[in-house]
């Protein structure tokens, strides 16, 4: 396997897979800047002259930028709350022996892979009944709750790697549990917590089901339902569709590119299982 030829083969296959994961982004970017006619003539062609008309068409037909803001408005608080609640719970589960802690943990583990619709069905009816349909608050709290079990599960295995002796030493020095959490667990567990935060962000930003069911009015619609709707309207106008896809993907792509170092290391450290 150390021969040059076999390494060349490995490299070539990696390049092929790499192209398959990157090319769609290039396809979206290039075709969003071409006219429909140019696209239909040759979807793989390079743009001869770039135009931003698809973007103006996108903004004039659907409230696209608003939908991005709506998504941010829901996702950011949900990510913060879910990550914080998960960190606190995982801390107790690993470092603070407490009665009933096991019951809560096993409950979370059991409902972790519950199909979303089992949970959402009664919540939807309750939200509609109380007149909170198309209100951001229920969506924020439901997204928070649904992401807590997985986050807690991941952070629990993460915090377990922190030696108990560190916590004990702080206890002997007279530090309160809260202080230990803030001063010891948060700094040491930071890479894991950031990884879980990013995963939670991706989960919520990319979800279609809950946002589609809970926030369907135009003035509350999040970005994924807007994109899904756009694809129904614009199958004939691919450049407009591509403009929407690219803008919808941009926040998660930026987050990934900006944090890749920490995120990939966090994922590789076995944090995902």
């Amino acid at each position: 396997m150390r021969s040059k030829i076999s390494r060349g083969v490995v490299f070539a296959i990696l390049c092929l897979i790499g192209i398959s994961t990157v090319y769609p982004l290039i396809f979206m970017a290039l075709n969003s800047m071409r006219t429909t006619q140019a696209f239909e003539l040759n979807p793989f062609g390079l743009p001869t002259h770039l135009t931003l008309s698809s973007y103006t068409a996108l903004f004039s037909t659907v409230p696209f930028l608003q939908s991005i803001l709506h998504s941010l408005f829901v996702v950011v608080p949900a990510v913060i709350m879910a990550t914080l609640a998960s960190s606190l719970a995982a801390f107790v589960f690993t470092k603070v022996p407490v009665k009933m802690g096991n019951v809560l943990f096993w409950t979370m583990l059991m409902i972790m892979f519950m199909p979303g619709i089992v949970v959402l069905l009664p919540l939807y009816v309750e939200v509609a009944r109380t007149g909170l349909a198309n209100n951001f608050a229920p969506a924020i709290f439901i997204y928070t709750a649904i992401n807590i079990p997985y986050g807690t599960y991941l952070l629990r295995s993460n915090f377990r790697a922190i030696p108990d002796s560190v916590v004990e030493a702080a206890r002997v020095d007279g530090a309160s549990w809260f202080k230990i959490f803030v001063r010891v667990i948060l700094p040491i567990g930071k890479p894991g917590i950031i990884t879980v935060g990013i995963l939670t962000f991706l989960n919520i930003w990319n979800d279609l089901f809950i946002s589609l069911v809970l926030l369907h009015a135009p003035n509350t619609e999040m970005v994924t339902p807007t994109l899904a709707q756009l694809s129904g309207k614009y199958t004939s106008n691919i450049p407009v569709l591509m403009a929407g896809l690219l803008l919808g993907a941009l926040p998660t792509l930026i987050l990934y590119f900006a944090t890749a170092r920490v995120f990939i290391r966090g994922m590789l450290s076995g944090a995902v299982r």
């Binding site: 990319n206 979800d207 279609l208 994924t224 899904a228 896809l245 919808g248 792509l253 990934y256 890749a260």
Partner: peptide, 10 residues
């Protein structure tokens, strides 16, 4: 890892 960052919708 890029595909995993994208929404199933996209």
């Amino acid at each position: 890892f890029i595909p995993m960052v994208l929404s199933p919708v996209i």
